[in-house]
């Protein structure tokens, strides 16, 4: 269904009359008119964005939008606004943005140079890197042990790309979603599953027997998560960044982080000093 949506969106875009080159985006004007900021986010990526047991669509990324970005955007448009959520996935998120279905992607999207050719990114709001999830005691301890091993990854992820390019001796298997990849690991179709460390920590926390699994290896890639926007909309980007910046400065960001990733959070993932330095460096601190 999602794939179908992608194709439909793509076709619609390809066939649509192309807007005059350089037409200025004005998301703020659109939000001012409708009173709604529409975000694209995920339904199954805890703790960033997911539907919880009470059937509420929640998560770290969503909280950041609600508590940090929303007030700043409201200020910029001069009126109270509402947040509406739509589901986005790796293949659909850029088309959803460009065809104006959503205004902001807030989920687990890594900020890459290539993607910056199509969309703009906010300040980095989360920093992780690729690691491996393995059965406890596995010979795979990091990226240097994967030659000849069957390695699962998520289709469309930056990790898959790195493994393919830099570690061609590994047998890469790419699955469209986390459950399938984990199933393949659990049953032995693959020897390890590589993804962003935080995703693996989440998976391990949710597994029936978290003790059976280990997240191993140093980050072999950098995965800074940013919120994505249509390209060239400076005013909207300024508002989003201002919201995040304010969060870092006031410490509110760190409270939200603690809520989701603290010892009592969904996925305990303590922030390392390096990561904190990296995040604060963005706002000149």
């Amino acid at each position: 269904m999602k794939r179908l949506l992608g194709v439909v969106v793509a076709l619609a875009l390809a066939l649509a009359p192309i807007a005059p080159v350089g037409a200025e985006q004005d998301t703020l004007a659109k939000i001012k008119e409708t009173g709604v900021l529409t975000i694209g986010t995920r339904t199954g990526s805890p703790p960033f964005a997911y539907v919880n047991k009470n059937n509420e669509w929640v998560g770290f990324s969503i909280d950041l939008v609600e508590m940090l970005v929303k007030p700043e955007v409201a200020k910029a448009v001069g009126k109270a606004i509402k947040i509406e959520k739509k589901e986005s996935t790796p293949p659909t998120r850029i088309p959803l943005l460009t065809n104006n279905s959503v205004d902001l992607i807030a989920e687990t999207m890594t900020d890459t140079a290539q993607r910056r050719e199509s969309v703009d990114f906010s300040l980095t709001f989360f920093y992780t890197g690729a690691q491996f999830l393995v059965k406890k005691g596995s010979p795979v301890k990091g990226v240097n042990d994967i030659a000849g091993k069957r390695i699962a990854s998520q289709q469309g992820s930056t990790n898959a790309k790195i493994i393919r390019e830099k570690y061609p001796q590994a047998q890469l298997r790419e699955f469209p979603d986390q459950p399938a990849a984990f199933q393949a690991l659990a049953q032995g179709q693959v020897d390890a599953y590589t993804n962003d460390g935080i995703q693996l920590a989440g998976l391990k926390a949710k597994a029936p027997n978290p003790g059976d699994w280990e997240v191993v290896g140093d980050f072999y890639s950098e995965e800074p998560y940013g919120m994505a926007m249509r390209k060239g909309d400076a005013k909207f980007k300024a508002a989003v960044d201002a919201g995040l910046k304010h969060g870092f400065e006031s410490g509110k960001y760190f409270e939200i982080y603690e809520k989701w990733f603290g010892p009592k959070g969904d996925v305990p993932y303590p922030m390392t000093p390096q990561v904190k330095t990296y995040l604060l460096k963005q706002i000149g601190k």
Partner: peptide, 16 residues
Amino acid sequence: TRQIETYTAKAVEALT
């Protein structure tokens, strides 16, 4: 085609 999209961030071209 998804792979091309991942590498190039050009979803429309790849899917088309």
